[in-house]
Amino acid sequence: MAGYLAVLADSDLFGTMALISLAVALMGLSRAARGSRAYQLAAFACLLFMPVLYGVGIYILNLPPA
């Protein structure tokens, strides 16, 4: 699992998330989009991405060595 996460973190994960966050932020400029359920879920997912990734990283780092 640690090897998989290392490859995932080295891939375009953060660049992709930055582009998704930018798209959600630009959608938020529209009053109609801000009121939609899809926008609210996308914004929530973008806000929750880094804390979840941090938690997974802390969990992996605290595992005993194999």
Score class of each variant (00 low, 15 high):
Leu8Ser: 03
Ala66Phe: 08
Ser11Asp: 07
Val24Thr: 03
Met17Asp: 02
Leu8Trp: 07
Ala45Pro: 01
Asp12Trp: 03
Ala25Glu: 14
Leu13Thr: 07
Val52Ile: 14
Pro51Asn: 11
Ile20Glu: 00
Leu8Ala: 03
Gly35Met: 14
Asp10Ser: 12
Ile58Lys: 00
Asp10Tyr: 03
Pro65Thr: 04
Ala23Gly: 10
Ala38Phe: 10
Gln40Leu: 05
Leu5His: 06
Gly35Ala: 15
Ala33Gly: 02
Met17Lys: 04
Asp12Asn: 09
Gly3Ala: 14
Ala42Met: 05
Pro65Gly: 09
Cys46Pro: 02
Met27Trp: 12
Ala9Glu: 06
Gly55Asp: 06
Leu63Lys: 14
Leu48Pro: 04
Arg31His: 14
Ile58Trp: 00
Ala23Thr: 08
Leu8Asn: 02
Val24Glu: 00
Arg31Ser: 15
Leu41Ala: 14
Val56Gly: 02
Tyr59Val: 06
Gly57Asp: 04
Ile60Gly: 00
Leu63Pro: 04
Leu48His: 13
Gly3Cys: 08
Val7Trp: 01
Leu22Val: 02
Phe44Ile: 05
Thr16Asp: 08
Leu13Gln: 04
Ala23Asn: 12
Arg31Thr: 14
Ala45Gln: 08
Gly28Trp: 04
Ala38Lys: 06
Ala66Ile: 11
Ala38Gly: 07
Ala23Arg: 05
Leu22Gly: 06
Gly15Gln: 11
Ala38Tyr: 09
Val52Cys: 09
Arg37Phe: 03
Ser11Ala: 11
Tyr39Gln: 07
Ile20Trp: 00
Ile60His: 01
Ala66Ser: 15
Ala32Gln: 14
Val7Lys: 10
Ala66Tyr: 11
Tyr54Cys: 13
Phe44Ser: 13
Ala23Gln: 09
Arg34Phe: 05
Gly3Pro: 09
Arg31Trp: 13
Ala9Gly: 00
Ser30Asp: 10
Met50Trp: 14
Leu48Met: 15
Gln40Phe: 00
Ala6Glu: 08
Gly55Cys: 09
Ala33Phe: 11
Tyr4Pro: 01
Met1Phe: 01
Gly55Val: 10
Leu13Glu: 01
Met27Asn: 09
Ile20Arg: 01
Met17Val: 05
Ser30Cys: 09
Ala6Thr: 10
Asp10Lys: 07
Gly3Asp: 12
Met1Leu: 14
Leu8Cys: 01
Cys46Leu: 05
Leu61Asn: 12
Pro65Ile: 05
Arg37Asp: 11
Leu41His: 09
Leu61Phe: 03
Arg37Thr: 11
Ala18His: 03
Pro51His: 10
Gly35Ile: 14
Leu48Cys: 13
Ser36Lys: 12
Val56Arg: 04
Ser36Cys: 15
Gly15Trp: 00
Pro64Cys: 12
Ala18Cys: 02
Leu41Gln: 13
Val7Cys: 04
